[in-house]
């Protein structure tokens, strides 16, 4: 499949943004600069980047508690994200949402969601809305392996298939739901096999291969946009960090973590682009330095931003 050069470079940039943003959040959180909890997307960068590279700005996504990657890949400005993580007034959601609840409808981001599977019916409804309004938009629901065992998953996929809705379900199977290995609580190996039960295509892809993710997403999004209905894509991947920052990793064999970290998605892709002459080594380096500068700027913006006025806690409830 012929992927435009700017898209190939864009995917590298998005992955680098996610990587550097998350690494910085990891450090800042450990240093006690951020309140609450953070769930890092490190290791899964290729999925958000590969899927969102196939979407238009007005296409919809719903995200999860591990949502920073999706939000960045859909085009969010890291300054306002970082400010939201700091609980500052300048954050995307005025400090009312935080890490797990970033939304920005102008970019089609219908919210990261702290309820496992919570975004799946919402994306399905957005797809219904797009169809009834004849807008040509597509909705993508990102969710994890754990969400695929929720009723919301089953109900939504059945309805989406029955109504032939323009929606793509992207399951990021990182093998663990918090501390429970998924193979202990799910009989089948591939979640994508469930697609057959709903009457939609199910595709398994290597979630650490951004080109494989892009191609699967491209086909699914094209199918959705042309009225042929939903697709379930299962991306096999792994989170480098524990479920949330600060949680001791008592449940994963160290050799498993190491093996997956050797399969990290960015360096091989970068080498591939250089080998193919898509980008030179110096251009790639400049791209990365630019991303690091943007992350620096985001942190400075967040640090220098004011906290919301306490009484603003009573605003924004009613429309």
């Amino acid at each position: 499949m012929e992927i435009p050069r700017e898209t190939l470079i864009r995917m590298l940039e998005l992955m680098l943004k996610i990587r550097h943003f998350e690494n910085r959040v990891k450090e800042l959180f450990a240093a006690g600069e951020m309140p609450g909890f953070v769930h890092l997307y490190l290791g899964q960068e290729a999925i958000a980047a590969g899927v969102c590279a196939t979407l238009n700005q007005d296409d919809y996504i719903t995200s999860t508690h591990r949502g920073h990657g999706h939000i960045i890949a859909k085009g969010a400005d890291m300054k306002y994200m970082m400010a939201e993580l700091y609980g500052k007034a300048t954050g995307y959601n005025k400090g009312k949402g935080g890490s797990q609840h970033i939304a920005w409808p102008g970019l089609g981001i219908l919210g990261a969601n702290g309820i496992v599977s919570g975004g799946i019916p919402i994306a399905t409804g957005a797809a219904m809305s797009a169809r009834l309004r004849k807008s040509g938009q597509v909705a993508v629901a990102f969710f994890g392996d754990g969400a695929a065992n929720e009723g919301a998953f089953h109900e939504s996929l059945n309805i989406a298939a029955a109504f032939c809705l323009p929606v793509v379900y992207v399951c990021e199977n990182n093998l663990y739901g918090v501390g429970t290995r998924q193979s202990c609580v799910r009989k089948i190996e591939n979640i994508a096999d469930r697609a057959a039960g709903y009457g939609m295509p199910g595709v398994v892809v290597d979630g650490n291969d951004v080109l494989a993710v892009y191609e699967a997403a491209y086909e699914a999004v094209t199918r959705a946009r042309s009225g042929e209905g939903p697709t379930l894509i299962e991306c096999k991947t792994y989170r480098w960090r524990t479920h949330f920052e600060g949680e001791p990793d008592t449940y994963r064999p160290p050799e498993e973590v190491e093996a997956w970290m050797r399969r990290e998605p960015i360096a091989p892709y970068r080498r591939h682009l250089i080998e193919q002459g898509i980008i030179s080594a110096s251009e790639a380096e400049a791209l990365e330095q630019g991303v690091i500068a943007q992350v620096d700027e985001a942190v400075a913006f967040a640090r220098n931003s004011p906290f919301p006025a306490p009484e603003s806690a009573l605003e924004d409830l009613w429309a």
């Binding site: 019916p121 919402i122 109900e155 939504s156």
Partner: peptide, 20 residues
Amino acid sequence: MPISELGYVGMGVGAAATGL
């Protein structure tokens, strides 16, 4: 709708958030 209350009410939320 099929008898899937979480599915079709949840869809109402998503549809309402996007213009319906």
